[in-house]
Structures are given as C-alpha cells and as structure tokens.
C-alpha cells in the first residue's frame, strides 16, 4: 500500500467524513453523560418535581446512543457502498504477510527505531489495526451492552429486550453489564487519546496530510520520495 505518486488523492468520501465527525461528537456526549450517570453531580435543591437533572443527563445519553448506533449501522452500509478505504475499518488483511510487515514497520516507527516514515493513502496499517480493535469492536460492545441496559428500562417484552436482553445473563447480571459498559468507555477513550495525539503528530511529522484529510477527504503528500 505504500505510495509512490504525489498528487492529492480522494480517500475519504463525504458520508464517511460526516460519519467520523458525528461519531466523534456522539462519543463525546456519551462519555460525558455516562460518567455522570455513574458518578452523579451534587444534590439539587428544591422539590423533586422541579428538577430533572439525572433525567436530562440520561436522556442525552440515550439520544447520543441512538445517533451513535444508527451512525455505526450506516457506517457498515457504507463499507459496502463506499470506496475500498471504507472497508478498512471492518476488514483486516490478516492473511497478508506484507500487511503484517507494515504493522511491524509502523510499530518500529513509533518506537523511534525507524528514521523515515512511510506514506499511505488510506490508514496506516497500525492505525487500522488499532481502529479495528478499539473502535469497531469497542462500538459493537458498547451498543450491545448499552442497549441491553436500555432494554431493562424499556421492559421485558419490548423489541430492545428481544434483541439485546440475552446480553445480561451472558455477563452474569445487570450490575456486571454496567461495570463492563463503563469499562468500555475507558477502552474507547484510551483509543481517542492515542488517536488524536497521533493524528496531530502525523500531521506534523509524517509526509502526508492527515487531519485535513478527514475534513476535505483528500490526501496530500508533502514530498516526492517513495
């Protein structure tokens, strides 16, 4: 996948970019509200009927959750409809030794063992691996555990329960699902930290455009070497 040409390449199509930023936003809301669901803000003064703070926080969580989940479903659709970069999030070329060698190379690059970074049109293989593990599986995990918890509130005979209710006994009981769902937040946040750091760093240090690519869709290369 190493590139040799240097002109701007259209990598990320508009729906994918839209998804990326909507997804980023929904996760931000989910993490913030999720945190305050688990560790609520200090007690509100006044009568209960005059306050709805937890209610609003939970409502925001569930709204963002629907955005997040529908977005993820749309993203899966786009994996079929979009260009081949759109499939990178879901398919790892695990049987391709060359890909693994590049994962290895990128790892060495981040450990300062390589002097010269390589160029990629799509994700670099290490980034792809990370996204697959943290974002793809992380999202699936959060959607299944999240909707299982949501189903508890929606009642035992609704469609949420029919689709996701089985998740609860799988983990043991509801409390376990809460804990794992909560851990899932940190799993995704850990990715986000690395992801944002690397995106900015690569923008500065690598030989291609990065952050602007997720905005404009075009990959620009800074030099002509291979």
């Amino acid at each position: 996948m190493s590139m040799q040409k240097m002109e701007a390449v259209y990598v990320y199509e508009a729906p994918l970019r839209l998804w990326h930023w909507v997804n980023a936003l929904s996760i931000t809301v989910l993490a913030l509200t999720g945190y305050f669901i688990a560790s609520p803000l200090p007690t509100q003064p006044g009568e209960a009927s005059a306050n709805f703070l937890m209610g609003y926080i939970r409502f925001a969580h569930f709204t963002a959750a629907y955005v997040f989940a529908i977005g993820f479903a749309a993203r899966i659709y786009w994996a079929f409809a979009g260009n081949h970069h759109a499939r990178q999030l879901f398919l790892l070329p695990v049987f391709n030794p060359q890909w693994w060698r590049e994962v290895w190379f990128e790892s060495r690059w981040y450990l300062f063992l390589e002097r010269e970074p390589r160029k990629y049109v799509g994700h670099n293989p290490l980034a792809q691996l990370f996204m697959f593990v943290f974002v793809t599986w992380g999202s699936i995990f959060m959607i299944f555990t999240g909707f299982a918890l949501y189903a508890e509130g929606e009642g035992r005979d609704g469609w949420h329960d029919n689709l996701f209710g089985w998740v609860i006994p799988l983990f043991g009981q509801s409390q376990d699902v809460h804990s794992w769902h909560h851990l899932g937040m940190w799993w995704i946040l850990s990715f986000v930290i690395i992801h944002i750091y690397v995106a900015i760093r690569e923008d500065i240090m690598s030989r291609q455009s990065i952050v602007s690519t997720m905005i404009s869709g075009y990959r620009m290369f800074k030099d002509e070497r291979k």
Partner: peptide, 21 residues
C-alpha cells in the same frame, strides 16, 4: 461503582479504566 475483575485486575471501572486512560 462496584468491583470488576477484568483479566484478574481488581478495582472499579473508573479505577481500572481511568488508570489505563
């Protein structure tokens, strides 16, 4: 926030997850 034991580590979700993050 109650104790979970992912992969043998013991703590609550914020202790474990927060430490990782």
């Amino acid at each position: 926030l109650t104790t979970v034991r992912p992969f043998g580590i013991e703590g609550n979700a914020d202790q474990i997850g927060g430490t990782v993050a």
